[in-house]
Measured scan of single mutants.
Amino acid sequence: TTTLTYTDEEEARKAAEELKRRGITFTYTKRGGTWEIRIK
């Protein structure tokens, strides 16, 4: 499992869109002031 952490929502959203485009499965979690993208 790879976890990407972002403090900028815009960056996190761009990363999530890129992963979706590649067909990669991930979970997206907001934790306080950070956003976590966990790639399975």
Rank of each mutant, 00 (worst) to 15 (best):
T1F: 14
T1V: 14
T1A: 12
T1Q: 12
T2I: 15
T3S: 05
L4D: 02
L4C: 05
L4A: 03
T5N: 06
T5R: 12
T5K: 09
T5Y: 15
Y6L: 02
Y6D: 00
Y6C: 02
Y6G: 02
Y6H: 01
T7P: 04
T7C: 04
D8K: 08
D8C: 03
E9F: 07
E9Q: 07
E9P: 07
E10A: 14
E10P: 04
A12V: 03
A12D: 00
R13P: 00
R13Y: 07
R13T: 09
K14T: 09
K14F: 07
K14D: 07
A15G: 03
A16Y: 06
A16M: 15
A16W: 04
A16S: 05
E17Y: 10
E17N: 09
E18W: 12
E18P: 01
L19F: 09
K20M: 12
K20A: 13
K20T: 14
R21V: 07
R21H: 08
R21D: 08
R22W: 07
R22A: 12
R22F: 06
R22I: 08
R22S: 08
G23S: 03
G23R: 03
G23E: 03
G23Q: 03
I24C: 03
I24G: 02
T25W: 11
T25A: 14
T25E: 15
F26T: 01
F26R: 00
T27K: 04
T27C: 05
Y28D: 01
Y28F: 15
Y28Q: 06
Y28S: 04
T29H: 11
T29P: 00
T29L: 11
T29V: 12
K30W: 08
K30V: 11
R31I: 15
R31K: 14
R31C: 04
G32R: 05
G33A: 13
G33M: 11
G33C: 03
T34A: 10
T34K: 13
T34V: 15
T34S: 10
T34I: 15
W35Y: 10
W35R: 01
W35Q: 01
W35L: 02
E36P: 00
E36K: 03
E36S: 04
E36Q: 07
E36D: 02
I37V: 03
I37M: 02
I37E: 00
R38G: 06
K40E: 15
K40L: 15
K40C: 08
